[in-house]
C-alpha cells in the first residue's frame, strides 16, 4: 500500500498550470526527497497532499483513503506538514501549549494530550524546553517545536516543505537528524522538499520537479550523477559533484560520488598509482 498516491493530478492558481498530470507515489515508510528550483511546483505538492489546496482534476489517495471533502480530516490526521518559516507556525507562546494545539483540535482527552506532548517533544529532543517561551528558541529549535506540533497528531506521513531553508547550518543539522530518526525509529513516511542537495542524500529516493512535472527520479546518487540533465532544470550540482567534474576534465578518472570519503579514496588511488 502506498502512503501517498497522486494520479493524473492537475492544479492551477487560476493561470497557467502549476501541476499538470502529476503521477507520484510514496511507499509506506519511505523517505523521499523532492528537488526543484523555485516555482517548480514542489510546494504545491505539499499543500495538495493534505488538502490545503484541492486538485482541479485527478485523484489523491492517502493510505487508500481518497482525499475528498468527506475524508479531509481523516487525511489531515495522517499527513502532517511542516512549513518554511519557523516563526509562522506557532499559535501559542509556550512550547507545550503550541504542541497541544493539534491534539486539542481533534478533541483528545486531556490526559492523552499530555502524553502526546511528552511523546512529540521527546521525539524531537526538546523535552527540556516544554515550558519555554517559543520566542526565545533558536530557529532550529522552533522548527523542531513545529515538527512536534505535527507529531502530536500521530501522523503516518510527514511532509517538510523547505523547512530548513531559513535555518543556519546548525539548525539544518538538527532538523536532518530529527527527520532521519522519525523515519527510521518511528517508521514515519517522510517527504522532504528542499533545495539543499546534501539533505536529499539522506533520502531513499529523490525526485526532481520542473514546471509541475516529475522529470527525474531515482536514488539520490544516481540523480546527482546526471549532472548535465540537472543543469537543464536550473538545479546546480552539489559542490562535490563540481569538484569531481573538474578533476575529470583535468584527466583524472574519478567517478561521480557525493561521499567525501569515497572521492578521497579515488583521488588517493590515482595519485598513488600515478607516481
Amino acid at each position: 500500500m502506498n502512503a501517498i498516491e497522486f494520479r493524473g493530478v492537475d492544479f492551477s492558481y487560476g493561470g497557467d498550470f502549476c501541476i499538470r498530470g502529476l503521477n507520484f507515489s510514496v511507499g509506506e515508510g519511505e523517505f523521499v526527497a523532492v528537488l526543484g528550483h523555485n516555482g517548480s511546483g514542489k510546494s504545491t505538492l505539499a499543500r495538495l497532499a493534505n488538502g490545503i489546496l484541492r486538485a482541479d482534476a485527478g485523484e489523491i489517495r492517502v493510505f487508500d483513503t481518497i482525499l475528498d471533502d468527506k475524508h479531509l480530516f481523516d487525511v489531515r490526521k495522517q499527513v502532517g506538514v511542516v512549513f518554511q518559516n519557523p516563526d509562522n507556525q506557532t499559535v501559542a507562546s509556550i512550547v507545550e501549549d503550541d504542541v497541544a494545539f493539534g491534539a486539542e483540535n481533534v478533541a483528545l482527552p486531556r490526559e492523552e494530550i499530555g502524553r502526546r506532548i511528552e511523546f512529540a517533544l521527546r521525539a524531537v529532543g526538546m523535552e527540556e524546553a516544554r515550558k519555554s517561551t517559543v520566542a526565545r528558541l533558536s530557529g532550529g529549535q522552533k522548527q523542531r517545536v513545529a515538527i512536534a506540533g505535527v507529531l502530536a497528531l500521530k501522523p503516518r506521513v510527514m511532509i517538510l516543505d523547505e523547512s530548513t531553508a531559513m535555518l543556519d547550518p546548525r539548525g539544518r543539522r538538527e532538523i536532518a537528524d530529527v527527520v532521519l530518526r522519525l523515519n527510521k525509529e518511528e517508521k514515519i513516511t517522510v517527504v522532504l522538499i528542499t533545495h539543499f542537495m546534501e539533505e536529499a542524500l539522506l533520502a531513499d529516493r529523490a525526485v526532481v520537479m520542473n514546471r509541475g512535472e516529475i522529470v527525474m527520479e531515482g536514488k539520490p546518487e544516481e540523480i546527482f550523477a546526471r549532472s548535465e540533465e540537472l543543469l537543464t532544470y536550473n538545479l546546480a550540482l552539489p559542490r562535490i559533484g563540481l569538484i569531481a567534474k573538474s578533476l575529470r576534465e583535468g584527466g583524472m578518472s574519478v567517478k561521480d560520488t557525493l561521499d567525501i570519503e569515497k572521492l578521497a579514496d579515488e583521488i588517493a588511488e590515482e595519485i598513488v598509482c600515478g607516481s
Binding site: L247, G250, E270, G274, S275
Partner: peptide
C-alpha cells in the same frame, strides 16, 4: 590535486 598526479608521473 591534478599537479600532484601529474608531478608523480
Amino acid at each position: 590535486v591534478l599537479a600532484r598526479k601529474g608531478g608523480g608521473q
